[in-house]
Amino acid sequence: MTRTPTRLTHRFKACAAEGRAALVTFITAGDPDLATSQAILNALPGAGADVIELGVPFTDPMADGPAIQAGGLRALKGGQTLAKTIAMVRAFRATDDATPIVLMGYYNPIYIYGVDRFLADAIAAGVDGVIVVDLPPEEDRELCLPALAAGLDFIRLATPTTDDKRLPTVLANTAGFVYYVSITGITGSATPDPSAVTGAVARIKQHTDLPVAVGFGVRTPEQAAAIASGADGVVVGSALVDAVRASLDGEGNATAGTVEAVTSLVRSLAQAVRGVGRQAAE
């Protein structure tokens, strides 16, 4: 498919040119409150995040573990909405026009916002792609095809249960990058086996030229480095959301240390990812 290169394409190419994997960081929009979350978002690139996944909170996150569930509930309690999440991206773009931002979440908030309105507002705000956990290829007409037509990358999850027969279906309408879910499970629940992941990435690359980022369960700089050696990107989410939680005061409010709790972890993850070269998996 010929498409205008997006920020995602440029960023993955730039990282590849440096001979390393991209660090993809996930935070939940509005966690623990809108202002703190905006400050974290704005500070991520400076701390070494190459790509940002901004989680759209949902009451019923069926594919997420306790850390991201709790982050979403904190954000919702603070009054976070999809409109406010899109506005966060608009504010971010005032100072950063290069770092790709992908919205990640579940379909219902987008469906209720209205697909056409969502695509228009998200693109105008500077969103580069979407990951919608509960929209498999069987439901591509809902959002995937309209998003691609509008110029927004639709990033698909491939999993250990996606076999070679199904892989082409999963990759068919994917753009930006492929997100390989390194475990059968929910976010943050288990530790991926780096050698199995490297093999899985190689298998996916036989079917696509898109970069492959790996996530679900990567928590420490050591794990990130191990995954980064065999993939185009490594995604860290639950650990960052946990860092937010650990920084809160007794009432669950942000403290002076909340932003730094996230950025210091991102810095050490970035250092680890930059410290390892990319194996020639291609």
Binding site: A63, P136, P137, E138, E139, R156, T161, D163, V170
Partner: peptide
């Protein structure tokens, strides 16, 4: 065949579950 009753129904699940 895709599980739709009019606009209702469907298969809105994570990819991990789709093969199952």
């Amino acid at each position: 065949e895709n599980g739709h009753f009019g606009i209702f129904g469907g298969r809105f699940v994570a990819e991990t579950l789709m093969p199952n």
